[in-house]
Structure formats: structure tokens, C-alpha cells
């Protein structure tokens, strides 16, 4: 045979992902809805609960998880592959540690090959939870995700939306795709849901999107996160999770609790 039917990097990526008890991909199809923020805060919340947690930042064009967590440093390589960087109690792998502030324009097929190789080379050790920050877009990155997660035991997708009609329509396509490709969806997280003003709840982007998607696809809404300026401040503070407002932290904590109940690690 020609060998074309063997893709060693994708195969190894799946093998290494499957070493974690649970793999949760945080995806939206869209940018700027809070995927990276949610990934980073879920990781911090899981670590606080004593879980062994890793984050694979696949946003190769705009790696932001290291910035949110205030992680800096150089990756080391050994016989087992590339060691993630430890930040607090979180194991973090991101091309952000390798390309500094340089831009990375990619062309046909390169992104898929890059994220396969990154996932294939990373040596996580044993993790209970591996969170994947999925880049925006429903092109190559989603095709990769389908190939990587399809049929992988203990793997599922957490879909992030906002109440905006535009986000809803992008997320609907993503949910259709995940359903058709038989990739598990753990639930929906609605970000930028509301803010409080003088005791009143204001919903600037409308309401109902998460419920509609939840009904349509029979998946639960696991959390609603407020619009909260403390998030930007927390990122700048260098002590991200602790600096979040009580309200945001308790919403994230509730989210992590539902995820742990729905999808318990170590089983």
C-alpha cells in the first residue's frame, strides 16, 4: 500500500487525548464569545477542587489561555514528548509559548497538521480532565475536532453561545454538525447573558437563545454567565481566578459541578 491511509499524527493525538479520563472541548464556532475565558476559569475551578487538569490551547492564531492564566515560560522536550507548562495547578500547552507575539498566517491543511502534531507530541502524564480551547471557525479546526473526538470514550463538547441572534445561528450550525457526526455534546453555556444595574437584571443581547438551542438539540444549559467587568481586571491582575467577582466564580463553580456530575472522571 501507499501509506496514505495512515495518519500517524492524528492517530497519536487521539491516543494521547484518550489517556485523560475526560476530554472536554470548549467550542462555539465563533470568536469573542468567551471560550478561552471559560476554558481557563473551568481549569482553575477544577484545579481548586483538587483535580488533575490540563488545557490544550488549539487557538494557534490567537493563543490567549496563557495570557488569561498569566503563564509564561519555555516548553521543555524529553523522550516522552513536549512537557506542558505548569501554571498554578494547571498543565498548559499552547503554541503561545513557542511563537511569542509573532503572527501565524496558515494556508491549506497546515492548521490541521499543526494541531494534530501539537496534540500528538504533548506528554500530559495522567490527567483527570483535559480541556481543549477550540479556535473560532467551523473549518479545519472543527474537522480536526470531529476526527479527534469521534468515538473517543469520555470525550464531549461544551458549546458556548451568547444570547445574540448571530451567535445563535453560528452555534446552531455547530450543534447540527456535532449531532450529525455523532460527537457528544455535554451542554450549552450562555455567556454575556445579563448584567445587574440597580438591582435589575438587564439582557442587552436578548434572551431565549440558549433555551431554544437546548430544546432543539436536547442538551442542557449548564450555566449562564453575566457580563462582568471584573473579568478583564482579573486577567490583568495576574491572579485570575481568585480575582473574579463572587458571582462569576460561583457560576463557573456551578458549571464545573454539573460537568463533574454529568461526566465524572476516574470512572
Amino acid at each position: 500500500m501507499s501509506g496514505a491511509d495512515v495518519d500517524p499524527m492524528l492517530h497519536e493525538a487521539r491516543a494521547r487525548l484518550s489517556r485523560a479520563d475526560k476530554v472536554i472541548a470548549i467550542s462555539a464556532g465563533k470568536g469573542g464569545v468567551g471560550k478561552s475565558f471559560i476554558t481557563a476559569s473551568m481549569a482553575a475551578a477544577l484545579a481548586e477542587r483538587g483535580r488533575r487538569v490540563g488545557v490544550l490551547d488549539l487557538d494557534v492564531h490567537g493563543p490567549t489561555v496563557p495570557k488569561i492564566l498569566g503563564a509564561r515560560g519555555e516548553i521543555t522536550a524529553w523522550k516522552g514528548g513536549l512537557r506542558p507548562l505548569r501554571s498554578g495547578n494547571i498543565e498548559l500547552m499552547s503554541v503561545g509559548f513557542m511563537i511569542g507575539e509573532e503572527p501565524l498566517p496558515s494556508a491549506g491543511g497546515e492548521k490541521m497538521s499543526l494541531i494534530s502534531t501539537l496534540a500528538a507530541l504533548t506528554d500530559w502524564g495522567h490527567l483527570e480532565y483535559l480541556l481543549i480551547d477550540v479556535p473560532p471557525g467551523t473549518g479545519e479546526e472543527i474537522t480536526w475536532l470531529l476526527r479527534a473526538l469521534r468515538g473517543l470514550e469520555g470525550a464531549g463538547v461544551l458549546v458556548v453561545t451568547t444570547p445574540s441572534l448571530l451567535a445563535e445561528s453560528v452555534v446552531r450550525r455547530l450543534l447540527k454538525l456535532l449531532r450529525d457526526e455523532r460527537v457528544d455534546v455535554l451542554g450549552i453555556v450562555e455567556n454575556l447573558s445579563y448584567f445587574r444595574c440597580g438591582g435589575k437584571l438587564i439582557r442587552p443581547f436578548g434572551e431565549g437563545a440558549a433555551e431554544r438551542l437546548s430544546r432543539e438539540f436536547a442538551v442542557p444549559v449548564l450555566a449562564r454567565l453575566p457580563i462582568d467587568p471584573s473579568i478583564e481586571e482579573a486577567i490583568l491582575s495576574g491572579n485570575f481566578y481568585r480575582s473574579l467577582s463572587e458571582e462569576v466564580r460561583s457560576a463557573i463553580s456551578g458549571l464545573v459541578e454539573s460537568v463533574e456530575t454529568l461526566n465524572p472522571a476516574g470512572r
Binding site: 521543555t76 522536550a77 503554541v95 513557542m98 511563537i99 509573532e102 501565524l104 496558515s106
Partner: peptide
């Protein structure tokens, strides 16, 4: 030389390109 991956146990620093050739356009 500012961007590298540290090899253990040799202590050599290699370009990330060597591990992830698809980073070529960033490096």
C-alpha cells in the same frame, strides 16, 4: 534565538520549528 524549546537532558535549545514545522510562518 529568542524562541526555543529546551531539550532534556542535553540542555540544548532547539527552534520550535524542529518539533512543529507548521509554525514556519511564525518563525
Amino acid at each position: 534565538h529568542e524562541l526555543g524549546i529546551l531539550e532534556e537532558p542535553s540542555g540544548d535549545r532547539e527552534s520550535p520549528l524542529h518539533f512543529l514545522p507548521d509554525l514556519a510562518r511564525a518563525l
